[in-house]
Nucleic acid binder design. Sequence first.
DNA 1: TAGTCAGTATCGATTTTATCGATACTGACA
DNA 2: TGTCAGTATCGATAAAATCGATACTGACTA
Lengths: 293, 293
Amino acid sequence: MNFSIRQLEIFLSVAKHQSVSKAADQLCLSQSAASASLQNLEKSYGVSLFDRQGNKIKLNAIGHTLRKEAETLFAHCQQFDDALKRHADIGHLRVGASFTIGNHLVVRYLADYLENYPDADVQFETANTPDIVAKVLNYEVDVGMIEREVQHRELELIPWKEDELVVFCSASHPLAQKGVLKDKDIKEARWILREPDSGARFTFDRALAGLLPDIEIYREFKHNEAIKSAVESGLGIGCLSKVVLQNDFRNGDLVPLTLANRDMTRTFYFALPKQRHKKAAVEFWVELCRKMR
Amino acid sequence: MNFSIRQLEIFLSVAKHQSVSKAADQLCLSQSAASASLQNLEKSYGVSLFDRQGNKIKLNAIGHTLRKEAETLFAHCQQFDDALKRHADIGHLRVGASFTIGNHLVVRYLADYLENYPDADVQFETANTPDIVAKVLNYEVDVGMIEREVQHRELELIPWKEDELVVFCSASHPLAQKGVLKDKDIKEARWILREPDSGARFTFDRALAGLLPDIEIYREFKHNEAIKSAVESGLGIGCLSKVVLQNDFRNGDLVPLTLANRDMTRTFYFALPKQRHKKAAVEFWVELCRKMR
DNA sequence: TAGTCAGTATCGATTTTATCGATACTGACA
DNA sequence: TGTCAGTATCGATAAAATCGATACTGACTA
């Protein structure tokens, strides 16, 4: 590779102004430097880009052809320059969170984050836990927030906060009066649950181990809202994180049910690519979330 | 623009090998130079591209993202490098010729040209005269070969050789016996001619000035072959360059007719963009064609 | 636990490249 | 025949790339 980006820039400017002096002015460069740079480019490839006659300089056939290509290349260089600068931007951050965490917790922290980094370009997306993990490993997000442990050589997990699943039914459901469920109730109920890939389902399955084969899974949904609606309309009973249900319990739309001797607690985690130096933005985000717990 | 193509190359090589030493080897560079270059890139943008831990170095999230972009950019640079080299190629030449010149004269010279420049990348195309002129002015061909004068500030015309149009008919046509046409014959004949943009038609119109309004143009075609076929099948009489007709006259398939006092001669020209230094290949081509006249 | 190895970063020296200011050359124009 | 605006060239200097030598690090091993 026998040319420099600077030469490209000088070539383009001279071509545009049809003048070495004007190009030099525009680039804040001495005329002699511009002239020399241009000649170096031509000499090193044995190509003549301009016709020179006395004090005139004019693009020739090859110059015309190469100018077009040089323009796109230079633009491409500028794009890369931008990309480098963008990544240096203080505060730039991409967060990927599971549905439950994302929709009920993270959204509340964004405002606080942006107070500290007013110009930051913060991207935020939700998906289920395996998808978030994949995005972290693929460097598509800087930090993931997930609902269960995941083992991976390239993944660093940082515990964030404890959570608890709650079984619930509609206010008018027969079990609503009972409050506490026995194994018999569990087996007889029609369950409305999250899909098997979800963190909530993972914890549910673990907590109900032993009873699982006898449980009737009446419907599976991918989103918490769907489950709440279904349960509210009396279709069955559900099991979701308490963070999703607080408002509904307070309003009386839904009623919590207690399971004896079943551990429904779990831990939320940050999931980061295992690297030595975390971006300042990531460190700040993790600290912020911890404070807000 | 705060990065160099060299830095790009070094970054990509280190990313590929996950090792500064290996990258340095591949690039025939000392390890220290590679290390310094990489660090300069990172420092000048305030970005960290790799995680360094003791004697290990490993691409981090930003590095991953930027690697992809750097790859396409570097490929783009290589393309441009190629383009520069290609244009430096000795012998590289793009010739555009009018149909008549191209198909009957130029094709015979190409072999001689390639004897001198065995590895040359020679491109050759035919079109009618205005299109060839446009291509010359647009730097799409290095040299045009056309059948008549064209005025343009940016165009340099170099006369090449004299040519002559010949009127002809089929051997079985009534006029074939006559040999010489009078004005009356010209008006009564059914003419089969090239399209108005063509060089042959331009000369024909000039030569027959005064009679034009009375002439019956029975058919117009864009290609000489079509006219010859039509005339041969007795559809009418034609008028084309002698270079197109020599074989047919010799075989007796077509018969030349003489017009009294009509000047059907014309000049073929080279058409070049007006520039001071012509490429050696162009100069050589022009000389070659002159010798072959 | 000390020694080796393969890797990285750092240092000072040297070479190459970029840039500058001054000056010489060129053609157009008054 | 100057003047002007442009280009190329020259020598000097500043900046950058590269080198070889060396110091540091962590993994492995005797």
